[in-house]
């Protein structure tokens, strides 16, 4: 007697996958085999216990945490052909714009002309103390020797 074959049939029966003809064979075997009958009863009890566990409620925090974990995904995914074309085009446009703006800036800060150089030289007056300033007063009180000291 091949009990392994019948235990496989018991398992299949528990899973609702045993055909009618096999079921008759199995019942016939079970009527005379205590070990297999025991196996069937205990397996049935196990299945009953397993199925009796009610679904637990997930914690309330789970749903928002799942959504938060993937929130940025849809907006930045390369999921459309238009996006694949649009991003390089935008990059190229930004580069052209950058060159143009750079040119404008370059013009604004171009090297000084001859006239500008004269203006810069004129700044030598800053070496003197303006009339009425503390430096001018001190220099005056020293007897006008400021020019000699400098």
């Amino acid at each position: 007697m091949d009990c392994r074959k019948f235990r496989r049939m018991v398992s299949r029966q528990l899973d609702g996958a045993l055909d009618g003809a096999s079921r008759a064979d199995l019942e016939s075997h079970l009527s005379s085999c205590t070990g297999c009958r025991r196996f069937r009863d205990l397996s049935l009890a196990g299945l009953s216990m397993h199925r009796s566990v009610k679904e637990a409620d997930p914690p309330r925090s789970l749903f928002p945490s799942i959504l938060a974990a993937v929130e940025v995904g849809p907006r930045w995914r390369w999921n459309g052909g238009w996006l694949r074309a649009a991003v390089p085009a935008a990059a190229a446009a930004a580069a052209v714009l950058g060159v143009w703006v750079g040119g404008l800036i370059h013009e604004s800060y171009a090297p000084a002309t001859a006239g500008n150089q004269a203006d810069v030289l004129e700044l030598t007056y800053l070496d003197e103390y303006p009339p009425g300033s503390m430096g001018d007063i001190l220099m005056t009180s020293n007897g006008g020797g400021g020019d000699e000291q400098r």
Partner: peptide, 19 residues
């Protein structure tokens, strides 16, 4: 990339997965 669809999917199967 439809976030509403993902939300619906989570609502439908969150409990199954957790259990």
């Amino acid at each position: 990339g439809e976030s509403d669809a993902f939300r619906s999917l989570v609502e439908r199967y969150e409990r199954t997965g957790y259990h």
